[in-house]
Design a protein around this nucleic acid. Structure first.
Length: 269
DNA sequence: ATGCTAACCTGCGCGC
DNA sequence: TGCGCGCAGGTTAGCA
């Protein structure tokens, strides 16, 4: 489900309901997510939430004694619901808040994660991450430098969190289309000038998707329950076999590292 | 070091 | 209508 814009949308949606509220109860109905939810998570009980932050697709909820690290995996979502609403089949975690609301985690596939991070602790998950795409640290120079000598497909390269975080399958396909680069092109053979175009499109597309509340696929909704509207702007993702919006050539599909990739043979080289 | 594969899960849509 | 198969927004671990 969630790529970076969806996580950012979720953060913005739930943040006003969480900040300065105390976590009165932490209810774990299904501890077996991607990893077992650690017992330390209960250290957050009775603590007031100070603020939220996002790193890559990780959503962090901070208190003075430590933080929760939330990852939504493929099918996870966080919602604010009123107390007393019966949990559904895949509602694995509830945080009951002092304002009477409940932060509810829903995740059918359970690829998501809920972890605990103590004050001054670091997580190996966060330490290995590359730059945020919407900062100046992420640019053509970085992509070009890091890709020299690499034979892997450029699509796999930009989806690698060590190079840049937050570019998932949807936006990888879309940004490569907009940049006119074939997804299977070896990353090491792409010029700095072309990485310049690619980096600009990655930034633009993620920014735009955030502004529109994320991409709604299936039943994704932001923390405020509103759907995202970016899906209607997808040019190649999910459009294999259909005509290219630019030139009407039938869009091709191929698999790169197990992920479906769609491109136009005429517009992308 | 690099790069691929399998694995973690459930649900849905499609073809038979 | 039912069943089996393949596929789905992500990421890590493990192997060659």
């Amino acid at each position: 489900m969630p790529e970076l814009p969806e996580v950012e949308t979720t953060k913005r949606g739930i943040e006003p309901w969480l900040v300065n509220q105390q976590i009165n109860e932490i209810i774990i109905r299904q501890p077996q997510l991607r990893w077992l939810v650690p017992d330390e998570i209960h250290e957050l009980k009775n603590e007031p939430i100070t603020h939220l932050s996002r790193r890559a697709k990780y959503l962090l909820v901070h208190t003075k004694v430590g933080s929760a690290i939330w990852h939504l995996g493929m099918s996870g979502s966080l919602r604010i619901v009123e107390q007393g609403i019966e949990p559904g089949k895949h509602d694995h975690v509830d945080w009951v808040l002092s304002n009477g609301m409940v932060l509810r985690y829903h995740d059918p596939r359970r690829f998501g994660a809920l972890l605990f991070l103590g004050v001054n602790q670091t997580s190996p998950l966060l330490e290995k991450l590359g730059p945020e795409p919407l900062t100046d640290e992420f640019n053509a120079e970085l992509l070009w430098q890091r890709s020299r000598g690499k034979s892997k497909a450029v699509k796999a390269f930009i989806m690698d969190n060590a190079n840049v975080v937050g570019v998932g399958n949807i936006y990888a396909n879309e940004s490569l289309f907009k940049a006119g680069i074939r997804p299977q092109a070896p990353a090491g053979k792409i010029s700095k000038a072309r990485y310049q175009v690619l980096a600009e499109h990655i930034k633009e597309i993620l920014q735009k998707a955030i502004e529109q509340g994320g991409t709604t696929l299936k039943d994704f909704v932001g923390g405020d329950g509103k759907p995202g509207y970016f899906a209607q702007e997808l040019l190649v993702y999910g459009r294999g076999g259909l005509p290219c919006v630019n030139c009407a050539t039938i869009l091709k599909e191929l698999r790169i590292e197990q992920r479906n990739s769609v491109y136009c043979t005429k517009c992308q080289h």
